[in-house]
Design a protein around this nucleic acid. Structure first.
Lengths: 173, 173
DNA sequence: GAAGTACTGTACTGGTAGTTCAGTAGTGGG
DNA sequence: CCCACTACTGAACTACCAGTACAGTACTTC
């Protein structure tokens, strides 16, 4: 049932992921789904936890630019192929009214950005991590989700170079 | 009725903005609202057009850093106070299935970023505009919408300096 | 005053979220 | 072998809401 919820969430979005739909996909009765997860947010919590578990971290090689490129490409692919964009949008829409949805938003965002944050933490001074993370993740998000355009490898290289320009400037590279 | 739709959209989000709710707010009967806008997307189109009309452009003074700061602050405020975040999320969630919603997403994104794009176009070479726009807007979006944190003036100054670092480096500033 | 336009109020259909409950099937312990 | 327990089923049911239909009203225009 959790696997079915996760699949439905990624394929159909929050709005279409109902107890009845999960029951249909998993081959259980609707009453059983309600027995385990009384509310929709309960169901989403476990589904999103599963989705987060399944997320794999790309390997880091030690080169800041290359590792960032790999991690950002993974984020871009997750956003477009895995339909994270719609999922994230559904969670954000409900986060305004619902503390549970707010927690899910934080969890999803953290999972999606863990790889990139790890690379930045390893390669930059602590003060540089958060703004660089926001700029890199934000640029990919804007391209994929808000402009609805493909995130090319060239685009990723470009925003990495721009983001690291000041860091490398002050570090004397 | 359009004003009521726009207000409901900003205050309650897409999901709660129904024909019945618009009729209640505007003091008309539900049948009248249906007569003018047969589908929800029809209603949203006019409501979002009104919201976009009401958006005002901050004045530009000619200083790139300062003008960007003003425009990005306006975006940050719009996102948090005006509930653009939830509105945008609602549109994105439906954009996956609906061409009409996709058009609305583009229109909203364009309106929200027009001021910043204008400042960048005036101050940078054409090739620099799109990536810098994505980084700046993305960073603010990530802060306000995805991390759910306040976008401070210091944060905005910081991301502007970082984004423009390479541009000013190659320009020989 | 006739024709047309805009809106109202109510009642209706259809669909769906969520509840309830009696019944069934399997499991493990004594 | 039986008992108690757990998990699940299927169907019926309530409550609500989106969307439709339509007869009636009020106002305008020629």
């Amino acid at each position: 049932m959790i696997a079915a919820s996760a699949a439905s969430l990624l394929e159909e979005g929050w709005g279409a992921t109902t107890h009845a739909e999960v029951a249909r996909r998993a081959g259980y009765s609707k009453a059983t789904v309600y027995a385990h997860w009384p509310t929709t947010v309960d169901l989403m919590r476990d589904a999103i936890a599963r989705i987060c578990e399944d997320a794999t971290l790309p390997p880091a090689g030690g080169n800041l630019h290359e590792d960032l490129h790999v991690a950002l490409s993974a984020l871009a692919q997750t956003l477009s192929e895995g339909r994270y964009d719609r999922l994230m949008a559904g969670v954000i829409e409900r986060a305004a009214q619902d503390q549970g949805a707010r927690d899910l938003r934080d969890r999803l965002y953290e999972t999606a950005t863990t790889g990139i944050r790890g690379v930045l933490t390893a390669g930059l001074r602590p003060d540089d991590v958060e703004p660089c993370l926001a700029m890199l993740v934000g640029a990919v998000l804007v391209r994929a989700t808000y402009e609805g355009e493909a995130v090319t490898s060239e685009f990723i290289t470009d925003i990495i170079d721009r983001t690291l320009a000041r860091v490398e400037l002050t570090a004397g590279h």
